[in-house]
Design a protein around this nucleic acid. Structure first.
Lengths: 226, 226
DNA sequence: CGACACCTTGAAATATCTCAAGGAGCGTGG
DNA sequence: CCACGCTCCTTGAGATATTTCAAGGTGTCG
């Protein structure tokens, strides 16, 4: 089992078993072909409580999944970038809502079909297990972040993780708004904004126009207890 | 898929597919027989990073699993009560540490053996998927709690959940220390203590000696936004 | 009975939030 | 092409929930 050399995979991990992604959900499962679809910025892909008919893989763009309380407080449980799977449920209904952050292309797979195949092909069922396990690991790392890390550590860890998932060059456009970041990190938008300013003030990053940032990764890493 | 009528399953859910638990890990899998073992109060069952050879089911007592940062901050990711499974990993190593809260009896299963069976029996692999999914659901609910709920809501939700898992009578002994509760809820022990006092002051519960509490469940429920 | 771990409570410190205002970027329509 | 109206982001000042530090209380077990 390969594990990336990251302190904590803050954003949901890549789908594991797929090779390139020629439309099939799993390697060795060519009968599972996804249907392409696109969603606009802020468009809902599915809502919490809806019947979970489909599973999605991001091809291009970005997606967030979240839960809300009745008074509107929101917790984003994951951001999904190209290659990532989301929306896979075992029960009848989705446990989250999902929306596109920007114009997003996805492949849609039928859950019934996947489950039917998993029922009689053990290696496919194992891949489902694998998928759930990866999400679980992310969720557990995120619990530690939400329960025990300071705002500075949360933001630093978040930016490092996004960088990594976007290629690890250290310079990238943050694909989500401050509100989304805040709702992912359990903070307010003002705190996120101030914390990024603070990181810049300490020379841990540069804001280079728009949403682009350039990380001094060694300094950022020093801020994230491990 | 049955979903209990709880706002949020705060403690890790029961193992799903097992029937009574005559020593077998899964229904329909009598060749997986667990070896009984016991652990004393605060005794470590496994540590984070250790090789994950075994899977455990609680028979009696209670277990916590947690992660720690290098400076000692700790996040408990779950409490495991009789019937619950813990320690199941997919990779080579444990992602958590686990300790017994009190004298605890468990059944130990060999991971290799389980995986070997899962490799060629799809329904067993599906049960592994099911297990991971349940843990995932708990983790995601807990993220919402850690990221977006107040101390009062956290403690109230926690007590309601423990009550439910301990039989739902409304009166029970809290099986964990304030420190454990705090590290589970992302709070300090003082805040947990004060919050319980506050709940008592508001008539939402009674402390009836030792660690026993008696919940006014309707009032408690009103405190937990859903 | 004493020691010890655990729990409770108070007072002060502080991290984060809330409320408020202004600035930057961007698409649209005149 | 500019101005308007948005939405998003930043920053400040004050409010507040929670933490920190400190002390004492309670229960349990040898």
């Amino acid at each position: 089992m390969v594990r990336p050399a990251v302190p904590s995979p803050i954003v949901s991990p890549r789908t594991p078993v797929i090779a390139g992604g020629g439309g099939a959900l799993f390697a060795g499962c060519p009968e599972l072909i996804g249907t392409p679809s696109t969603y606009g910025r802020e468009e809902e892909i599915f809502g919490e409580g809806e019947e979970a008919e489909s599973v999605y893989r991001v091809v291009q763009g970005a997606v967030r999944t979240h839960k809300v309380l009745s008074d509107g407080r929101r917790q984003i449980t994951g951001f999904h970038l190209p290659g990532d799977l989301f929306g896979l449920e075992q029960g009848e209904t989705h446990r989250h809502s999902a929306e596109a952050l920007s114009g997003t292309r996805v492949l849609i797979f039928k859950r019934r079909q996947i489950e039917r195949i998993a029922t009689h092909r053990a290696e496919v069922a194992c891949q489902l297990w694998s998928l759930a396990t990866r999400s679980l690991r992310h969720a557990q790392d995120h619990m530690l972040l939400l329960g025990r890390r300071s705002a500075l550590e949360r933001v630093a860890a978040f930016l490092l993780d996004v960088d990594l998932r976007l290629g690890g060059t250290g310079t990238f456009d943050v694909p989500m708004t401050r509100r989304d970041i805040a709702d992912y990190l359990g903070l307010t938008i003002e705190t996120v904004s101030r914390t990024i300013s603070q990181l810049e003030g300490e020379g841990a990053l540069l804001r280079t126009g728009g949403r682009q940032v350039s990380l001094r990764r060694s300094r950022m890493h020093r801020l994230v207890e491990d």
